[in-house]
Design a protein around this nucleic acid. Sequence first.
RNA 1: GCCCCCGUAGCUCAAUGGACAGAGCGCCAGACUUCUAAUCUGACGGUUGUGGGUUCGAGUCCCACCGGGGGUGCCA
Length: 568
Amino acid sequence: MRRDMSQVLCDQIAALVLQALDAAQSAGDLPPFPLPDPAVERGRHEQHGDYASSVCLKLAREARMNPLEIAQRAIAHLSPAPFVGRAEAVAPGYINVWLDEDWLTSQVERILAAGSDFGRLDKGGGQRVQVEFVSANPTGPLTIGSTRNAVLGDALASVLEAAGCQVEREYYVNDAGSQIRRFGESVLARYAQALGEAAPFPEDGYHGSYVLGLGRELAEEAGRRYLEMERVAAVHAVAAWAIGQILIGVRRDLAELGVEFDTWRHEQSFRAEGLLDQALTRLRAGGYVVEYDGATWFRHPDLEKDVVLIRSPQVIPEPAERPTYLASDAAYLLDKLVKRGFDRAIYVWGADHHGDVPRLKAAAQALGLDPERAVLVIYQMVNLWQGGEEVRMSKRTGDFVTLRELLEQVGPDPIRFMLLSRSADSTIDFDLDLAVEQSDRNPVYYVQYAHARIASILRHAQEEGWAVDAPADLALLHHPSELGLVRKMLELPEVIDLAASQLSPHYLPFYAQELAAVFHAFYRDCRVVSSEPGDEGLTRARLRLVRAAQGVLARVLALMGMSAPERM
RNA sequence: GCCCCCGUAGCUCAAUGGACAGAGCGCCAGACUUCUAAUCUGACGGUUGUGGGUUCGAGUCCCACCGGGGGUGCCA
């Protein structure tokens, strides 16, 4: 796999600044102090340069000097670098750095050479990371909440891959426990009804219409076989069949959304491998297990209250259904971090599960694992709006909007873009009307349009007889809009770095919009394919430029799991 | 009651403790005989919920309150 060895520009500027401070100290221009965090960031205004460091402001106290003077003395020791055009010390003490314009334009070839690997970093160091996401119970179709989970987890995995981690995407199939039995009983009842039997529907059963469908399907497929079977065995068999059917649909819908998993880990399978027993043994050995009220409890100093691991037989009679989620989670931790040896296990959880975080962390600690290796990404809820009203959803009554319906009404690209465009901490109000709307009110198409527009330029160029891959003299690119486009393209590695380190893929759609915006501005200012005599060199250079921009747009769209259309 | 998330422009949202808090949409005024107008340019728009504190510097950190959402021992 080819890697972008220049890594992140921001880091290179930071290294230069630190080196300048160090040199100034050695020369006696600055008093001795430990080198701090260089605090380099993108300049927010043009006057602030491409990059700015506020490090001298932080140093003022320690060095007992005016921060501006620190900046001035440091800058005098700044060693030359090909990418630095100029650097200035500015009140109250910033070091502002402008990129060199010839270096900037030369980067177009580097971006083109990197191709779809542009922005690939080495920061992960090949660390093995598992991202476990969606993991919705296989008792019904995916809802919009699970869709946010899917979009977030998949983009997170992509970004971590780009940052240099070895990533595995996993779906945890919770196919054991009392909910599964209840689901099996519900399907069995609908199945019996489909065969004309008056079967009672279980209390707290699954009322969704899809359960009716499953019952009818099973009746056609299996005839009266399950009616003649002993009930417990029938429930078991029907549940297994129904889970299989649900998972087929889940897998199909996720694939249509562009989400594919490397592994589907079934709770029953790691139980069968003895991991549940191993986990309980470890917890017992550590003295974290107590027994009372007929149940087995997890007790940990970090937790205010004991948590049930194995339910009491008075509450749930069947042994196979007595372990709680926490017991399975503990076993699963062993699976992830010990048996399969991931360095980090990332969990993508909805806010309705945030209360379980301390328990999982405590369990990890109690199992003798570093709790830091279990990383929780919590996202807030999604509310659906249509016709100016909130669409109330209830899984219990089976009244909810599914991913399938969203795919049919909206399509995968707007779903992904809209659900990715907010930080995980923000609740999303998903406006169905807006998502469906194909207009400039919908930012999804803005980014894709930039890509399609470039494709159109390249088609036009070829029709005019230009070789779009011909070498060019990039030094001919001088226009502010040309340079702005290159600057923005070079930000991608930083965006990937930021999104990966903060586990926040929502930076991607914001960046994608910015990149599209600078391209559209370039399009306005600079004609690519010129028929003017004497413009041949510039045309060739601009063809290189737009081809690079197309590649970067395609790259960021791919990271978001979206398509990059050639025409719109 | 306690725990978690949110409160920023009319609306939807950004902002790794740093400079004058930014985008998109909406509204208003403009730009297509030229590679796609799903585009672009400009204007308007703010006491960052309230009150304290920490800091050279706070939308960001701490405390208290107000408002919205989520959770809170044998549901998942």
